[in-house]
């Protein structure tokens, strides 16, 4: 089992480096959408929660997993929607005399 943990840690370390490289290029003006967008991405635990909530097993385990499904779904749905709402508002400069 230690073997798989080391493999997982390898994936984790590489992903951290990719994250660092990619995120440093995000301009300050987009830092709030970045945070709400990553909120949505951290809702990825929904993937594990779906399986855990679907195994018919001990009652408590299933209820906890269902709670995780609810919270993660809020993050995913709410996070992506509110990020889109913000990004829709970012506009480039119009021609100075356009329609004003």
């Amino acid at each position: 089992m230690l073997e798989s943990l080391i493999l997982s840690l390898t994936v984790f370390a590489l992903a951290m480096f990719i994250g660092y490289t990619v995120i440093t290029k995000v301009p300050p003006t987009l830092h709030t959408p970045l945070m709400s967008g990553t909120n949505a991405i951290s809702g990825v635990v929904i993937v594990g929660a779906l399986v855990a909530a679907g195994m018919t097993d001990s009652g408590l385990s299933q209820w906890l997993a269902t709670g995780a499904v609810v919270l993660a779904t809020i993050n995913v749905v709410g996070g992506f929607l509110v990020t889109d709402r913000m990004l829709r508002m970012f506009r480039r400069r119009e021609r100075p005399d356009a329609g004003k």
Binding site: F12, G19, S42, V44, V47
Partner: peptide, 17 residues
């Protein structure tokens, strides 16, 4: 793996901010 990768991306983002 997807939990690990996505979690690491978010972790890195939060640390940078």
């Amino acid at each position: 793996n997807i939990l690990i990768i996505a979690g690491a991306l978010v972790g890195a983002s939060g640390l940078i901010l």
